[in-house]
Computed example of a mutant assay.
Amino acid sequence: MNVEHEVQLLKEEIKRLGTQAEDGHPEVTFGVLFNDEKCANLFEALVGTLRAAKRKKIVTYEGELLLQGVHDNVKIKLLQVDD
């Protein structure tokens, strides 16, 4: 799958599932994103898409690798809202 396309879908899902942080950027926890049925069907490799988006400075979160269960409460913040 095209990484650019997956990152665009990720942005849309963070907006859909997330809440607005104090700085105005949408954010969602990894657990909410990972456990969402629509996201499960959209992303073959959610963690890989998140890492690609983080490298491009589209999202930010603590750590490098997010694992279900262990990192469910890690907040993922969308830095690039409009494109």
Rank of each mutant, 00 (worst) to 15 (best):
N2H: 11
N2K: 13
N2D: 13
V3Y: 03
E4S: 10
H5G: 00
H5A: 12
H5M: 11
E6L: 05
Q8Y: 06
Q8N: 06
Q8I: 07
L9E: 09
L10A: 05
K11W: 01
K11N: 03
E12I: 04
E12M: 06
E13I: 02
I14G: 00
I14L: 02
K15R: 15
R16G: 03
R16D: 06
L17A: 09
L17Q: 08
G18E: 10
T19N: 12
Q20T: 15
A21G: 07
D23I: 09
G24L: 09
P26T: 12
E27Q: 10
E27V: 06
E27F: 04
T29R: 12
T29P: 02
F30K: 13
F30W: 14
G31R: 07
L33C: 06
F34H: 15
F34K: 15
N35S: 14
E37C: 01
E37T: 12
K38A: 15
C39L: 14
A40P: 00
A40I: 11
N41V: 08
N41Q: 15
L42G: 04
L42H: 10
F43S: 04
E44T: 13
V47M: 11
G48Y: 12
T49D: 06
T49M: 07
R51P: 00
R51N: 02
A53E: 07
A53F: 09
A53R: 06
K54C: 04
R55M: 12
R55C: 02
K56W: 09
K57A: 10
K57R: 11
I58N: 00
I58L: 09
V59K: 02
T60A: 09
T60G: 04
Y61V: 06
G63E: 03
G63K: 05
E64A: 10
L65Y: 13
L65N: 10
L66E: 08
L66V: 12
L66A: 12
L66F: 07
Q68E: 15
Q68W: 10
G69E: 14
G69Y: 11
V70H: 09
V70N: 07
V70G: 00
H71S: 14
D72A: 04
D72S: 05
N73E: 14
N73S: 13
N73D: 14
V74Q: 03
K75C: 01
I76F: 05
K77G: 02
L78F: 06
L79V: 11
Q80P: 00
V81G: 00
V81D: 01
